[in-house]
Design a protein around this nucleic acid. Structure first.
Length: 420
RNA sequence: GGAGAGGUGACCGAGCUGGUUGAAGGUGCGCGCCUGCUAAGCGUGUGUAGGGUUUAUAGCCUUACCGAGGGUUCGAAUCCCUCCCUCUCCGCCA
């Protein structure tokens, strides 16, 4: 959420951001409602002030044995008027809140303007692996090594759900443990393991709601949502809190399953493991002081890259253009890993700075050096999502006979075996 | 799921027979004083979010907030209703 005062004073900036992000927010309505709200609030406050004063006088008049029927009758009228105003006011507030929640974050100044085609190549690491045989795709490798049982998983939950089996299940678990340990030991993150069912408030806090409600799995009985990313649970850890100055910065790493309905995306990369409704992800999240957040963004990008470097997988880093930025993000880097069997890059990480957008929605604040209360900046990044990392891994480490080598860093997690 | 207790400021904890209580008292923290040092003591200050005024994120005025929402009343932390949450015991269960 943006600061109402900021919107009021910079409507052009906000309008530009909305159009650059291809959002359909109603800025005009926000400005109108804000104006109406303030007028009404002023009226209400003034009348309330009068009521408060007179209400204090009444007991004194009574004590002095003076007749209060007249004044009480007058106050009764004011009381009724106030009731009407407060109803109107809360309606306007509700409307304004709704509209405000639909205004996206403003892209950072160095974010390229435009759609997906304007995404910028930042850098790459390693190179496309060459084979002296024709490398197989991941589906073939999965079949040969029985790493997944996609058909039977579909029997359980429908298309878009996969099940890891045997060595595949072990390899995925090894990946998760490796990534967690790496971030904990090499990058000094604190591990948290949190609920994956969260309430509406949490989902609104990080910005998934209201816009993406159709994309979320929802448990009706309890009005709880399955998290699409552990960003939601981790970021909301400090919702409604004011952190003491010394408590910042904080850095967390969390593994969780993630759930996405992917409504309307059928047919797009749906084969196999590339786009699934449930997947596992290790996520890194930070709460930082505002003036450090862009420095930290680069740091987190490195943290995520280091995983791929350790795994020896070629990747490239992309700076997203405004049209490709998520609703809540001010700046995002994507990391795409090379999958030699598919002969394409797959997105395995998204690292974003939300500045104070999420903090304002979730009310995550801190006391700055001079004791004043300020919103923190929140950032998060995948570090990494397992399915596509899994694809790149088995495709990159395959041998001609279809067997798969285990990268050195994963060997300790797989009984020190060198081949899966 | 059943029975009971409870949700007040950074924390503990009064108030809950409705009326200077934004909230006693204590702890913590800030500032000042005192003390040879330490410990203690004394004084004083210490919430958040809006709105108005203003060059001002200074000051001043004002509103709201005692789990959330609604009701009664001239007036509610205090009375009534609904919901949420926490704790204890029982039941059920990994």
């Amino acid at each position: 959420m943006l600061d109402m005062k900021f919107i009021r004073e910079n409507p052009e900036l906000v309008e530009t951001a909305i159009s650059n992000k291809n959002e359909k927010s109603n800025l005009k309505k926000v400005l109108e409602l804000d104006k109406k709200k303030r007028e009404l609030q002023f009226k209400y406050d003034t009348m309330r002030a009068e009521q408060n004063i007179v209400s204090k006088q009444i007991p004194e008049l009574k004590k002095a044995k003076k007749d209060t029927t007249k004044i009480v009758a007058k106050m009764k009228m004011i009381s009724n008027k106030l009731k009407n105003i407060s109803v109107e006011l809360s309606n306007i507030n509700e409307e304004l809140e709704t509209e405000l929640l639909n205004i996206p974050n403003i892209p950072y100044k160095d974010v390229p303007i435009g759609g997906e085609s304007e995404n910028e190549f930042v850098r790459e690491w390693g190179e496309k692996k060459q084979f002296n045989f024709n490398p197989a795709g991941h589906l073939e490798l999965i079949k040969k090594n029985r790493l997944l049982d996609i058909k039977r998983a579909t029997k359980l939950s429908g298309s878009g759900f996969v099940g890891y089996t045997g060595k595949g299940a072990q390899l995925e678990r090894a990946l998760i443990n490796f990534m967690l340990d790496f971030h904990i030991n090499k990058h000094d993150y604190e591990e948290v393991s949190l609920p994956i069912l969260v309430n509406r408030q949490a989902m609104t806090g990080t910005g998934q709601l209201p816009k993406m409600e159709d994309d979320m799995y929802h448990v009706n009985e309890d009005d709880l949502f399955l998290v699409p990313t552990s960003e939601v649970s981790v970021t909301n850890l400090y919702a409604q809190e004011i952190l003491p100055y010394e408590k910042l910065p904080r850095k967390f790493v969390s593994y969780s399953p993630c759930f996405r309905r992917e409504a309307g995306s059928y047919g797009k990369e749906t084969k196999g493991l590339q786009r699934v409704h449930q997947f596992n992800k290790v996520e890194i999240v930070r709460f930082v002081k505002p003036d450090t957040s862009y420095e930290v963004l680069e740091e987190m990008l490195n943290d995520a890259e280091n995983i791929l470097k350790a795994l020896g997988l070629h990747y490239r880093v992309i700076r997203l253009a405004t049209g490709d930025l998520s609703f809540a993000s001010a700046k995002t880097y994507d990391i795409d890993v090379w999958a030699p069997g598919e002969e394409k890059y797959l997105e395995v990480s998204s690292v974003s700075n939300f500045e104070d957008f999420q903090a304002r929605r979730a009310s995550i604040r801190f006391r700055n050096e001079s004791g004043k209360v300020e919103f923190v900046h929140t950032l998060n990044g995948s570090g990494l999502a397992t399915p596509r990392t899994f694809i790149a891994l088995i495709e990159s480490y395959q041998n001609e006979d279809g067997s798969i080598d285990i990268p050195e860093v994963l060997q300790p997690y797989l009984n020190n075996k060198k081949i899966l």
